[in-house]
Nucleic acid binder design. Sequence first.
DNA 1: GGTTTTTTAGGACATTTGTCCAGTAAAAAG
DNA 2: CTTTTTACTGGACAAATGTCCTAAAAAACC
Lengths: 186, 186
Amino acid sequence: MKTIFQSIQDFSSAELSLLDDLITFRTLKKGELLLTENEVCNEIVFIEKGILRSFFVNHKGDEITNCFAFENEFMASFASFITEEKAEENIQALANTKLQILNKKALKKLYESGFKWQETGRKLTELEFVNLHKRMVSFQKLSGAQRYQELYENHQKYLQLIPLQYLASYLGITPRHLSRIRKAVV
Amino acid sequence: MKTIFQSIQDFSSAELSLLDDLITFRTLKKGELLLTENEVCNEIVFIEKGILRSFFVNHKGDEITNCFAFENEFMASFASFITEEKAEENIQALANTKLQILNKKALKKLYESGFKWQETGRKLTELEFVNLHKRMVSFQKLSGAQRYQELYENHQKYLQLIPLQYLASYLGITPRHLSRIRKAVV
DNA sequence: GGTTTTTTAGGACATTTGTCCAGTAAAAAG
DNA sequence: CTTTTTACTGGACAAATGTCCTAAAAAACC
């Protein structure tokens, strides 16, 4: 987590050591849930090792994957974290996972400890926004097949690490249709 | 614009008067473009009066509406503003529109002028994130018909003020299909 | 290593959504 | 007010995508 902060802002190691008292740790077994819908999300996790996926359930009861997070990335129900309303997502480990955790209280302390942390928070939020925006654009501009193609060309990691059933709903299509698309591409 | 800032943070009128030197004004005629794709967006606008829409063009040359902004709302290609890369959106006035403008330099001054502005910036970014997240969820969870239904029930304003052709691509469907949906709903 | 469970692929058919188009209604321009 | 342009609706058909299902492959478990 420190590395990420340092890449955004020039923190001294003294400044970063502030984190030592604020971060906690947790491990998850494959399949285990970190957050369930209707809970308020009050922590942001950073993945040291493993993979997480966030998903919600539609009116038919199907699980729809919202996003994945890999090593050295953050994950949370950011919407719930920000608004303090109940999350509509569940967050689940897709592999045995080791996490660093920053809860709301800890983050508040960081923000209060100075200008630089405020700015870091804003910049990280901006980056999350930009990621989400890209995803939104891909849903508006591209077909399911084109989104798969994009993943295939630029995010091989997804295809290697994620079961296709999860990938399908992430792409906004059914597993049946993803199978068709894969046949056409290969 | 001041009202919005005040609703987020308790600014004194002295603090807010800082804005007087930083905000500029502009009017747009109906149909006029505020930003075109491949420009870098370096200003955030606040709508005093009027309506804006942001749209991009897909590989077939169709215009796809990305979002709308109404009175007392902000608009920009936030992604371009943040990353300083070329925007993929165009921003256009759907009616004669009066704007307050905060450019990047002005915003930087605000941020540098203190903690409170930093925090305000972060919170506004968070709110934009939450809005975008809601939209993303509606694309993953709902059908075009359900998205229309939601608009019909909770955002009557859209139906009153926005030509259906723009609404269609905003909902992720064709005008032909929107017409079918409307027939079924009414 | 063998058994059970989960995941993936793909056939057959149904439904949804898009394409192309023409007629009408509505709005903008002169 | 009349003309011209633009926006909206809906028919007929085509293409894309979903549903349901079965068999094979892969992974997890004992």
